[in-house]
Simulated assay, not measured.
Amino acid sequence: MKTIATIFFIFFIGTAAQAQNNTTDVKVVTIETSIVTETAKELKMETKNEVVRLYKFKNARIKKALSFTTKRNKAKMA
């Protein structure tokens, strides 16, 4: 009895879903725009004087920072 009721319920839901009329057409409003073909190019020439540090060796500041030693870095005799 339970299976018959389940099949009837599924059949009823399926036919109710197909019986709906969704035939409304949505019209899209189009807007016409013009194409711009002229482009203006402007170049701004600015001179900047900046000071740059020049190191003799590559990554000199990094190597100096990584090569620090502390008092406890020394080897001890056991």
Rank of each mutant, 00 (worst) to 15 (best):
F68H: 02
A16C: 10
S67G: 14
V36C: 03
K2Q: 06
T39M: 05
V28Q: 07
L66I: 11
A17I: 10
F9K: 05
K63N: 11
E32T: 13
E46H: 05
S67K: 15
T6D: 07
Y55M: 04
K48V: 15
A40Q: 14
S67R: 14
T3R: 09
T37V: 12
I35A: 13
A5T: 08
V29Q: 11
K2L: 05
K64P: 00
F57V: 08
V52M: 06
V28A: 07
F68S: 08
A19D: 04
I31L: 13
N59V: 01
T37W: 01
T30N: 11
I31P: 03
A19L: 10
M45I: 15
T47G: 09
I62H: 09
E32M: 02
T39Q: 13
N49W: 03
T6W: 03
E42G: 06
I4R: 13
K56C: 02
I31W: 03
F57I: 07
T37C: 00
A60C: 07
I10Y: 05
T15I: 15
F8T: 06
L43K: 14
V28L: 11
R53F: 10
T23S: 13
K48A: 10
T33V: 12
N49F: 08
K2W: 01
T47V: 12
Q18E: 07
K56S: 05
F11M: 06
V26K: 11
A16R: 03
V26W: 00
K63H: 05
I4E: 13
A40E: 14
S34C: 03
M45L: 12
T37F: 08
N22H: 12
T15V: 15
R61N: 09
F12Y: 06
N59L: 05
K2E: 06
T37Y: 01
F68W: 04
A19R: 06
V26D: 04
T15L: 13
A5H: 07
F9I: 06
E46Y: 00
L54V: 15
A16E: 01
F8Y: 02
Q20V: 13
A5W: 02
K27I: 08
G14K: 01
T15A: 06
Y55D: 11
F9R: 09
S34M: 05
K48C: 02
I35V: 15
M45S: 09
N21F: 08
E46W: 01
K41H: 07
G14E: 02
D25H: 02
E46D: 09
K44I: 12
A17Q: 03
K56H: 10
A19I: 06
F68M: 10
F57Q: 11
T30V: 12
T30D: 10
S34F: 04
F68P: 00
T15H: 04
I4Y: 10
D25Y: 01
V36H: 11
I31G: 07
D25C: 04
G14C: 03
T24F: 00
L43P: 00
N59Y: 07
L54S: 12
F57H: 07
E32S: 03
K2I: 01
